[in-house]
Structure formats: C-alpha cells, structure tokens
Nucleic acid binder design. Structure first.
Lengths: 340, 340
DNA sequence: CATGGCGATTACATCGATGTAAATACGTCG
DNA sequence: CGACGTATTTACATCGATGTAATCGCCATG
C-alpha cells in the first residue's frame, strides 16, 4: 500500500501515447502545428497517467515559473491579508500562482525578497517595503521584476502602486475639522525623516491645519513602534495623560484606531461624543467595531489589479516602457466614530 | 545601465576559483573532504561573484527544495494569519522557508495543495482543510508528506495536529452554565454531518448540556455560510427574531462572535448584562473589542511547532514511525463578554 | 624505489522539459 | 508519376547542480 508509482514524467506520457516527448511538450504548450489526432491522444495519455508538468524542469529550461511573489510585512495586519486576497484573485484571473512571503518589515528580509533569494521560483515580486533604503533599490539586481506597494524608498528604480497619502490624510483631517474638532492628534505619525507612509500622511494632516489657519502642535503627533492594536491603545493612553486632551484621533491605520477606541472606552470617553476617531485601510473589523470606525478606504481591488498588471508587463517585456506610478483611488468612509 | 551581468552559475564560480564545478558544489554542501585552502578560495569566489544556488537546478537533481507549504482557507481570517506567523517563525528556526497558499476552503484547491500541484517546489505541506473528503486522503499521492491541521476528514492517512475540540466546547459551555445561562445558542454549529470542527464543538456543547441536565434545543444551533464577521452578525439577528431569546452565544470562532457583538449593540442588548458571548481562537481583535471577548485560546505556538516538527520528520524519513496525532493545549480566557 | 592507501579533486551522466534544427509525412501541381 | 512546399514530428543538446565513479597527488611502508 505504501508503494506508489512514481510521478509520471513527460517521457512516460510520450511512451503511452506513442509519440515523442517533444510532441507531448508541444501539446502542453499549445503549439499550433499538432494534428488534432495526436493532440487528443496526448491529452488522453496525460489524463490516464495523471501527469503534471514538473516546474523545476521547466524553469531550468525556460527560466519562467508562472509564479509571482507577494511580500508583505505582516500577514496578521488585516490590510495585508485582505490585499493578499485581492492579489491572488487577480493573479488567478491572469493564470498565475501567488506565493506569499512575510518580511516582518525587516530590511534584510525585504532585501531577500528584492533579490529573489528565497523566492527564486518566482518570475517577479510585489513588495510592500517598510525598512528598505533608497540605495537598496538602485543597487538591486535589475533582472528580477519588482513592483513596490505603499512605501517608496526612492524616486524611480521600480514601478510603484499606492494611494495619494498626502491627499487622503488631508481629507480625513478636513472631515474632522468640519465637525468642529480643533485638537487633532496623529497616532503613528512622523514629522521628519524618510518620506514613508507615516510622513506623507502627517504632511497631509499639516496641510489641512494650515489651510484652516490652525497651528501645528508637535506634541499631538505620537509615533508608534508598530501598527498594531496595542500600539494604538498605548498611544491613546499617553495622549490622555497630558493636558489639554485632544478632541480627535487621526490614526494612521485601523488597528491603531481600534486599539485607541478600546483605551477611550476603558477611560470612559465617549466616541464620537468626547472625541472623534478616524483610521486608515478600511479593514473588515472596522465595519463591526463598537462604535464602527470612520476610515480612509484605499481601493484594494484596484491596487491589486494594478500591481499584478504592472508586474506581468515587466516580466513579459523587461526593458520596455518607462517606470509607472499608479495612484489608486481612496475614499473616506464616515461611520459612527466620527458621527456617521 | 540596463545591461547587468547575468546571475553567476556554479561554473562561473568554479572558473574564478580555479577549481571544478563539483568542488564548488562540495563546498556549498559542506562535503568534508575539501581542503581548507580550496574551501576558502571557493568561498571567496562565491562572495566576489555574489553567487546563489539555483534552486530549480538543485531540486531537479536532488528532489529537495528546503521549502514547505502552509495551505490555509483564508488569510483574512485572523486565526490563520496568526498561525501563519508562528509557522514561519518555527520553520525559520529549522532553516526552512515557508510558502503560503490560500485554498479558500474549496475542495479543488485543497486537493491541489495535497497533490502538490501548485506547490511542487515544496518538500511537504501543512494543510488546514475545510472541504476535503475522507477519500481524498486515502487516494492521495503518498509521496508528498502532509500534516493536517484542525479538521480531519478521516482517521489515519496523515499526521494531524489540533486541539481537543469537544472538550474545549464543553468547557466553554460549562463556563456559561456556571454563570447561570440556560438558553445557549451555538453560532456556526452543526448537529449532523462530517466530524468537522463545527460538529465536534457542537458535540461538546451538547455534552455540557447533558451533564447539566438541560434539554438540547436544535433551534438554538445556527449554521453559517462562512466564519466571518457578517455571518456572526446575521446569525445573531436571526436568533433575536425568534422567541424566546437566547441568554448566551457560543460562537465557533472569534469573527462570528465579534460580528454578533456588533448586532447585539445595534439592538440595544447589553453584553454581558443581557447575554454572554464566547468565541474561539483568541485572535488579537478579541482583546480589544468592546466589550472584550471571552474566548477559547488554542496554543498556537504549540500547534505551529508540532506541525512543523511532524512534517520535517516525514520529509526526512518518509516511511518511518506510525501516524501521529498531536493534541495541542487550549484554555478559556474569560473577558468582559462573559463577566470577566 | 615500487606499491598501497587514503584524502582531495574531477569527468561525466543525470534530473525533466523544451528550443533548435533536421527529418518525415502529406498534399499539390506540372 | 515525381518534385516541391507545407504541416507534423522527432533527435539532440541544453538549462544548473550534484551523485557516481574514476583519477590524481601525497605519504607511509616494505
């Protein structure tokens, strides 16, 4: 019962169908000059033997695997797992398989993805970086097609897909201002440093304040270690320690916002009575939290679609066309946490 | 600028170091009979050229890749993304790389994982099945080592890792009973059919009722389509339509529970005032929800560790030892939603 | 000094699939 | 009926790494 026939090879199929291995290969790859009759015979042999192409052999020969890699910092950040779902769906539609890779936001692992070390089986990489440095992109091995998501360590070098972070943050802030909020804190924000997502969103926030003629208070910008619930909870606690209290929290992702909501609940602050809370990403949890969360919803299907398209284009024509920067749409979804 | 040197091959390294390709291979694979001198020269050549082994070539020759696949239904179900994190960490510790695969709970895709179709690069698979049938396991290709998580379509056939679902559900139910709850509904439950996780947990629930001398009311068991927030919300709504209302909800995962919490909030029911709510999985969201969620916490690190260990054993010795069934620990974490 | 023995190194074949180029089959036309 | 062109099919080499078995070099021993 333990002795199973070995997986059939292309030559087993050939023998069974009474043709040469190359003819089997031709059938598999839809080469047009194969008679209907042989094609049928080969198909039958394939079915009969349960033959599947050995991808290692194929890759060795033609250097393609039909697989692409999606490398994200953390899968338990819902934005990334939701995005992964869309990317897989889109890739499926295009006849590709997606391998998912977790970098934990560690530069070394992002570099590994960028260089295809752990991902040699992949024809290209969609990478959502956190710690990559500008020079990592310019010194990278240009042979592996790469599309960056979200963060962009430097201008040029790779195709890029993301939303207009500055505008999104400005709009979210304007929403809070229009509700009469004046002391808006930014959880997860960054005032200086790289033009990362945090910095761009903080810039958008500042623009909105400026337009409204309000002063910018650096004390209201609270950096965080990671974009998780507990960091949001902690940041909210810290903000409530100091006087005067903020009257709104602009949280740079939904996990931070949901963590903050919990802290406010524990401290007896009413949302949206005492404070408004806004997040980014529109993860599923935000529709069901109590109160439900106002959030900036990036167009995830569009992001996934653009990323896969750009990557496949690069794979098919490595040095064609100029670098693309696809700006995906976003919209503010107003829910209970800001009076919706 | 676009002309980059091709990725170096083993023979390029050989030429650079002035030795044969096989000697380079020997160095890479830590073959012991290589002089210190040659070894150093080869190492230097490898560094100088930035050589990395081509895994396709290696796999073709030795049939191993050093990669394992984790196939789960949906990454945006937090339990699975959290588990994925632990599996990756453990695999990393053991010097393996994990490829993640999403089956969407579709039998066809689970079969694909089981047969290594999309996962040929992988030495083995850790699969969390939903729709697999018993015969799928017995008729599967025995050459790909497989460890099943959670559901177990049939006795035997593969190694298995999971918690004691019956006992866990019984304990959770006992907890509710001890708080005086008498009309406990089961969201996501199943009274008959395969011995899936849902069925086992429902059985545990029934056992607890029986021990307490309470009647079993089939109307309190509400099946769901999927284990997502919205299904929990919908099921809770349905339960509130009918009289008499339940006084507790045993939800078979945390997403269902959190969705139900939202519905109860919308309908003005107080938790744990009017009803208690309990979930399964202890995802991060449950610590921060309002109210925080009582839940059965499976020992995820233990599950991940056992799964990886069993799989690596099977890979190293395909037909050694009998089939293992590792029962991982669990504990009930009582939080606000049941008076904690 | 010839021989044996052992460690270090290498030549060659091979894993599976497919590109190239050559061979074969088939049909058409003079 | 034979030559030629086109449609199919095939033989062979190749992708990169490594197992096998053979060879080489060196030292100890008789």
């Amino acid at each position: 019962m333990n002795t199973v026939a070995a997986r059939p090879r292309i030559k087993d199929v050939a023998r069974y169908a009474g043709v040469s291995p190359k003819t089997v290969s031709n059938v598999i790859n839809d080469f047009e000059h194969v008679s209907e009759q042989t094609r049928a015979a080969v198909r039958e042999a394939i079915d009969a033997l349960g033959y599947r192409v050995n991808i290692a052999g194929r890759q060795l020969r033609q250097g393609r695997t039909g697989m692409i890699t999606l490398a994200v910092p953390e899968l338990d950040v819902a934005y990334f797992s939701e995005l992964a779902k869309h990317v897989m769906a889109e890739a499926d539609r295009r006849g590709r398989t997606v391998l998912i890779h977790q970098t934990e936001g560690v530069r070394e692992r992002e570099l590994a993805a960028l260089h295809g070390f752990d991902t040699q089986f992949s024809d290209g990489v969609i990478l959502s970086p956190l710690s990559l440095l500008p020079r990592d992109l310019t010194t990278r091995d240009q042979r592996l097609p790469v599309v960056l998501l979200g963060e962009r360590p430097a201008e040029g070098g790779t195709d890029h897909v993301g939303i207009d972070n500055v505008r999104a943050a400005r709009e979210a802030t304007e929403h809070l201002l229009s509700r009469g909020r004046r002391r808006i804190a930014v959880i997860g924000g960054a005032v200086r440093g790289r033009q990362g997502t945090d910095r761009l969103r903080t810039d958008g926030y500042r623009q909105a304040l400026e337009v409204a003629g309000l002063p910018f208070a650096p004390g209201l910008v609270v950096p965080v270690e990671a974009y998780h619930w507990q960091d949001g909870a902690r940041a909210a606690s810290a903000l409530l320690e100091k006087e005067p209290h903020p009257d709104a929290l602009l949280c740079l992702n939904d996990h931070l916002a949901l963590g903050a909501l919990r802290t406010l609940y524990e401290r007896g602050r009413s949302v949206p009575g005492d404070l408004d809370v806004v997040g980014f990403d529109d993860i599923e949890a935000s529709r069901f939290s109590v109160p439900s969360l106002t959030t900036v919803a990036p167009d995830k299907p569009d992001i996934a679609k653009a990323a896969v398209s750009l990557l496949l284009e690069r794979i098919d024509e490595p040095d064609a066309g100029s670098l693309q920067d696809h700006v995906a749409g976003h919209r503010l979804i107003v829910r209970e946490s800001s009076g919706g």
